[in-house]
Design a binder for these strands. Structure first.
Lengths: 245, 245
DNA sequence: CTTGACCCTGCCCCTGGGGCAGGGCTGCAC
DNA sequence: GTGCAGCCCTGCCCCAGGGGCAGGGTCAAG
């Protein structure tokens, strides 16, 4: 009959771990020898190895306790479940590793070079510093959280700004910042933007919106918070686009 | 400027997690708005994503804090280190998964059928119940912990027992249980066993001993604990084999 | 002006052990 | 036998990485 230290050293865990498993009822308390030491048999080694296999797979100890006294059928289903979760975790870690490596290689590329150029162009076209900064934050967000779709969205946006007529609309949006929310120019601008959006994308969803991520909403809420006129503008545009669908 | 809930929901963590990161100094506390709410910018999103990437890779928060203010060079080395550990963990999980699947398939095979037959043969040959039980535990241990080498060791042992002359030696070992440790028969038996071992394996290591695992030592210590005569026998055999090398 | 959804701080709780104190056993050497 | 190292025992507090709740303030929409 072996001692707790041998059992533990043997399966590759600490003595404490074995005692914890006793306390939590995973491993039955064995008989004691005359001096009160726990004495284990070969079956306990086998049981402990099973427990460790589950534990290393990430199964909570409380669940392992249930499994140790579970029937064939339940055990079979549980093993399938555990296996699936383990596969997920492994995939997750591999994804993390990929992100880590990206972080290791392209460290200081918060934004692709094209975006910087675009932001400088905005300034030259007469956009306010406030607007440019909002745009900068928007693209940092989009590139950080949706690296896959960001480039496409950016190309679309960039193309829009290069058309003078559309650029005018954005410029007017920018400069509407200080207007009174009731100013008729706000309503007129909203109408024009709705028209332009519909003629560009039809009644389909524009690209930003199907990045279902909440990024556009997030940025929009931030824009709205900055000015009452902008808030009204946003609400009018939404209503206009909503009615067209 | 976005709120803590947006930041969190956004990167896919809880609000609490973000606050914990502030408390532990991973993410700098941002400015507050008039009502005391934390307000974040796009840079914070980027920083939080970095933090989560490390955290998901298993880096402790205290270490992440250091990394957030580390220089290029240190960061590069740390990333390499983290990547390596991550690879290890992934491999470990894959190994666990393999063991899990083994557990799922061949569940009730505590011992291969051949071992049971062998144990029954021992009884017929006149080994005591005590000896048979020790052997049973030994093989459970070996098969549980060294599934790769166990079959080979078992074949070797089995072959030894099938030779009548060697079997006699084992029988005498078994029956030496109750002898006085000073009995001359103990010394004589030890001599014979040393001779037989040397003639079977030469001066090389016998197979049990190079399963460097400690299993043999473990079992031997258990055997020794059972009887003073056995203890003496073991010590004599060790001395004899040691001298021959 | 209410209502629901946020936000704030402070506090205790959980898991899976690690580590230490303060005491008892065992086995080996001398 | 006597020492002494190395086990073992129980009981206790500690850690990370958050979860959850209390008790209170804030914001936006209807």
């Amino acid at each position: 009959m072996i001692t707790i230290g041998q059992l533990a050293g043997y399966v590759g865990v600490s003595v404490k771990t074995v005692r914890v498993y006793h306390a939590k009822g995973l491993l039955p308390e064995p008989d004691r020898d005359v001096s009160g030491y726990r004495r284990y048999g070969a079956d306990d080694v086998v049981a402990l190895i099973r427990i460790r296999t589950f534990a290393e797979a990430g199964v909570p100890l409380a669940r392992i306790r249930e499994l140790m006294t579970a029937g064939e059928e339940e055990l079979r289903r549980a093993l399938l479940d555990i296996d699936g979760r383990l596969t997920d975790r492994i995939r997750g870690l591999q994804a993390t590793q990929a992100r880590l490596r990206e972080l290791a290689s392209g460290e200081p590329t918060l934004l692709p070079a094209g975006v910087h150029a675009h932001l400088e162009a905005l300034e030259r076209w007469g956009f306010t510093a406030r607007w440019v900064e909002l745009q900068r934050d928007l693209w940092i967000l989009v590139f950080a959280t949706h690296p896959d779709r960001a480039a496409e969205l950016f190309r679309d946006q960039s193309a829009m700004l290069s058309e003078p007529a559309l650029r005018q609309l954005f410029l007017r949006y920018d400069h509407a910042y200080g207007l009174d929310p009731g100013d008729p120019r706000v309503e007129e601008l909203a109408r024009r933007i709705v028209d332009a959006t519909l003629s560009r994308y039809g009644a389909d969803t524009p690209p930003e919106a199907d990045a279902a991520s909440g990024v556009p909403a997030l940025v929009q809420s931030r824009i709205n918070a900055a000015s009452p006129a902008w808030r009204r503008l946003d609400s009018l545009i939404r209503a206009g686009l909503g009615a067209a669908r």
